[in-house]
Design a protein around this nucleic acid. Structure first.
Length: 107
DNA sequence: TTCCTGACAGCAT
DNA sequence: CATGCTGCCAGGA
């Protein structure tokens, strides 16, 4: 799979993240069959911010940590109803996507 | 081309 | 879950 195609697929998946949900770089990379290329997803997001064509604010790392040097992201997520923990990390237990199995675990 | 960096992840502690 | 170390891959100097 060429890099350009990889990026395109990344953007397509990012567009499919539902409102009020978040995803991780690794999850996206795995969905594309390239679990080793999580960093490339991050790079794709970096370029995406330049093109302004994808809701990259809904993509965080596997710990729920937000993007460094981008304070606006937290505000955008709060507007979508994303909840944060006291330490400032996204509550992945409640908003991670895709995570169908987690739904029936929630109260 | 080599070396360093980074919007990462997995595993150990 | 938080921290630290290692493995990864693609860019940039």
């Amino acid at each position: 799979m060429k890099r350009i195609e990889f990026y395109k697929n990344v953007y397509k998946l990012v567009h499919e993240i539902p409102m009020g949900r978040v995803s991780t770089y690794g999850a996206i990379a795995q969905m594309l069959g390239q679990p080793q290329c999580a960093r490339m997803v991050g790079q794709a997001m970096h370029y995406a911010s330049f093109f302004e064509d994808a809701p990259c604010h809904r993509v965080v790392n596997h710990q729920g940590r937000l993007v460094p040097h981008w304070g606006e992201q937290k505000e955008l997520l709060l507007k979508e109803g994303i909840t944060f923990k006291d330490n400032g990390c996204v509550d992945l237990k409640r908003h991670l996507w895709p995570e169908s199995s987690i739904l029936y675990i929630l109260p």
